[in-house]
Design a protein around this nucleic acid. Structure first.
Length: 309
DNA sequence: AATCCTTTCAACCGCGTTAGT
DNA sequence: CACTAACGCGGTTGAAAGGAT
């Protein structure tokens, strides 16, 4: 490398190299070359194909965009669930996570995490790497996804962006003067913050395990929602409101091709979709990808302010 | 209609790892 | 074993698109 630096040949190559978005002609050239010679040896490919791109750029274009088995479209609830689950296990190991989502690239998963998941952390003013946020994901977001996964099996119309649901919302689990009530489906207790989460104890919980109570840091009595000076959102008692979707439209549809994810990957990880499918507590809302409504978010915020962790 | 702002995602970059010599 | 090139991964950037004002 260094021996080339400064040489005419090197400068010529550098000047000739194209950057930025790929054109249709370049894509065609790359596809044709790989069809004839196969993948790999990217620098050689870059030289021989006639593309004025680096081997690195060719590889990326092929793996992230042109490869035939790349799945386009929105991530299905199951895929989102897998990402959240695997990220909690492995952190930012994007390529490793991508291996469990056929047709999805590490880049796509990384983008999903940054644009959707981290955005919610920012909205909540919680560090995306904190235990608080991880628990919030497990306790609120993942159950929502599980509901959707269950619903999508029996409600193909979910793929319709105009689809509405007769099911209730999170409000149905929130008493007029208290936090969300536990999910009626036992499977949901796995994620329910007051019974299953690891990092903090539920405020106001009367029957949680003593082993998880925070003896060192007494938790405040859970106040009525109306007692907060700032108060819950104006539409607390109203219809679902989502701060992530309000003011910015989020696509409600998942796309037909996003629904046919092979469920094997979930099973392999030790959980099954059917195990967690909501029963009569099927409170799917119409929030789209923003899976928490304002009440949930506000409540998580309060947990944070109480020093719940 | 024009401008500004926000979001998304394709593409780039740097660095660590692996393979070849 | 040392060196080099290629590869792959994760972080970051910036252009495009769409929504808000």
């Amino acid at each position: 490398m260094s021996e080339k630096r400064g040489s005419n040949k090197y400068e010529e190559d550098k000047v000739d190299l194209r950057r930025g978005p790929w054109t249709l002609e370049e894509d065609t050239l790359l596809i044709h070359y790989i069809a004839c010679h196969g993948e790999g040896r990217w620098n050689l490919l870059a030289k021989c194909s006639g593309l004025k791109r680096t081997g690195k750029s060719c590889r990326l274009r092929w793996l992230n965009y042109l490869k035939p088995d790349i799945k386009r479209g929105n991530l299905s609830p199951e895929e989102q669930f897998l990402i959240l689950e695997l990220h909690s296990k492995w952190g930012n190991r994007w390529s490793r996570i991508a291996q469990h989502l056929p047709g999805r690239t590490d880049n796509e998963i990384k983008n999903y995490w940054r644009t959707r998941v981290q955005k919610q952390a920012r909205q909540l003013k919680i560090d995306a790497n904190s235990a608080m946020f991880r628990d919030a994901i497990r306790c609120y977001w993942m159950p929502r996804l599980l509901e959707k996964m269950g619903s999508s099996q029996s409600m193909p119309s979910l793929t319709d962006s105009n689809a509405t649901t007769t099911a209730g919302t999170m409000e149905q689990m929130i008493t007029p003067h208290g936090p969300p009530q536990p999910f009626s489906n036992p499977a949901m207790h796995y994620y329910y913050p007051f019974e299953g989460c690891s990092s903090y104890d539920p405020p106001g919980s009367e029957n949680h395990s003593p082993t998880t109570s925070s003896a060192s840091m007494p938790l405040p009595q859970l106040p009525n929602l109306s007692e907060f000076s700032s108060g819950p959102p104006d539409n607390y008692s109203g219809a679902s409101f989502n701060p992530f979707t309000s003011g910015h439209c989020v696509d409600n549809s998942y796309g037909l091709d996003a629904m046919d994810l092979d469920p094997v990957s979930a099973t392999q990880l030790g959980f099954s979709v059917s195990d967690y499918t909501m029963g009569n507590n099927n409170c799917v809302d119409n929030l789209g990808d923003g899976l928490w409504n304002m009440n949930e978010l506000w409540y998580v915020r309060k947990l944070n302010e109480w020093g719940g962790i």
